[in-house]
């Protein structure tokens, strides 16, 4: 995924070479490297008891949103200016993405009648999640950290340090994915209400024409099921993104474990023979995971919206 821990690794390498030989029980805070940075970029006062400080993940959300907005708008404006239906250049890529989401994700689940109503929402989710996942694979901040470590030497609490620390994958944060899943949750209720009317949507949750004692069991079950779907969406996306980070971090940690155990040569040997090849493999796997998780989130949202529309009860 990303290598936000590269700076920490460089710092630890120096530390480890100093400490090699003595049995140092220095623990490494793994979660600190794969989560939000420890210090927010901008401190904001509490509002209604909620912390609105701009953290690394909030910043990355803005970066992704801006990048998506600028790139997609530029491509679409260019296509419109050409006044031809056949796309050219980057328009091809956009058309492939749009047609893929519309024809293979939304249409089979939502149905031909509603496909144009929900394609924009699901396409936005797809592109945004894909962008947020993929930007974590690009080691922008790790290169920055290396430059800082080698040349700039910014202070402990400088803005650059706060920008470098923490992970760059906003979708690896459970709060972000919970927000995205809330959009899906609202979309499910809206879709059911638009197709059947607000009251009928809630009646559709349980099958009618059953003996009444069954409803005592069914209604709570269906209500729990309604809440579990966005919860599962939240967990799936964030856990997959964080999982890649943790796996990479654990594999890369072997270098330092073996440096303290066997000295510098042992650490370099393990790094070359084991950590780097495996890390490359996992990074390659992460490219697939990034694509698949964006697809899965979109697909499941489409399936749930389709279930609310085609309630056969």
């Amino acid at each position: 995924m990303t290598f936000p821990f590269l700076a920490a690794i460089v710092a630890q390498a120096e530390h480890a070479t100093q400490a090699a030989g003595e049995a140092s029980h220095q623990t490494v805070d793994i979660i600190g490297h794969v989560s939000n940075g420890e210090h927010p970029l901008f401190e904001l006062p509490l509002l209604l008891g909620i912390n609105f400080s701009i953290t690394k993940h909030v910043f990355m959300l803005w970066v992704v949103a801006a990048a998506n907005f600028i790139i997609v708008t530029a491509i679409v404006r260019k296509s419109i200016a050409r006044r031809q239906l056949v796309p050219a250049g980057a328009g091809n890529v956009l058309e492939v993405a749009v047609e893929f989401v519309r024809d293979t994700v939304v249409e089979p689940n939502v149905g031909a009648k509603w496909v144009n109503s929900y394609t924009p929402l699901l396409l936005t989710l797809f592109v945004f999640i894909l962008g947020a996942n993929a930007i974590g694979l690009i080691p922008i901040f790790d290169v920055l950290a290396l430059i800082d470590h080698a040349f700039i030497h910014s202070g402990e609490h400088s803005f650059l340090q706060r920008l470098i620390h923490g992970s760059a994958t906003a979708t690896g944060n459970f709060n972000v994915t919970a927000g995205l899943a809330t959009i899906t949750f609202v979309a499910i209720i809206t879709a059911g209400s638009r197709a059947h009317g607000f009251v009928q949507h809630w009646k559709n949750l349980v099958p009618h024409g059953m003996p009444w004692p069954l409803y005592i069991l069914l209604i709570p079950l269906e209500l729990i099921g309604m809440l579990v779907r966005p919860f599962a969406l939240t967990m799936r996306l964030a856990a997959n993104m964080t999982g890649g980070h943790i796996a990479l971090l654990a594999i890369m940690s072997f270098v330092f474990v073996f440096t303290t155990m066997l000295g510098q040569l042992g650490g370099i040997g393990i790094g070359l023979a084991f950590s780097v090849p495996l890390g490359v493999g996992i990074s390659a796997l992460e490219i697939i995971v990034v694509l698949v998780q964006a697809y899965v989130f979109t697909l499941l949202s489409a399936v749930f919206i389709g279930m609310a529309i085609h309630a056969h009860h």
């Binding site: 089979p108 799936r236 697909l299």
Partner: peptide, 27 residues
């Protein structure tokens, strides 16, 4: 393969949930 996708992802979701809870126990 289109029909396989959905159950596969639902299954994956349950497994991921279990893994997250295990991680939470550790942390």
């Amino acid at each position: 393969s289109a029909a396989t996708n959905l159950p596969l992802f639902l299954l994956e979701g349950v497994a991921i949930l279990a893994e997250v809870f295990c991680l939470m126990i550790v942390l």
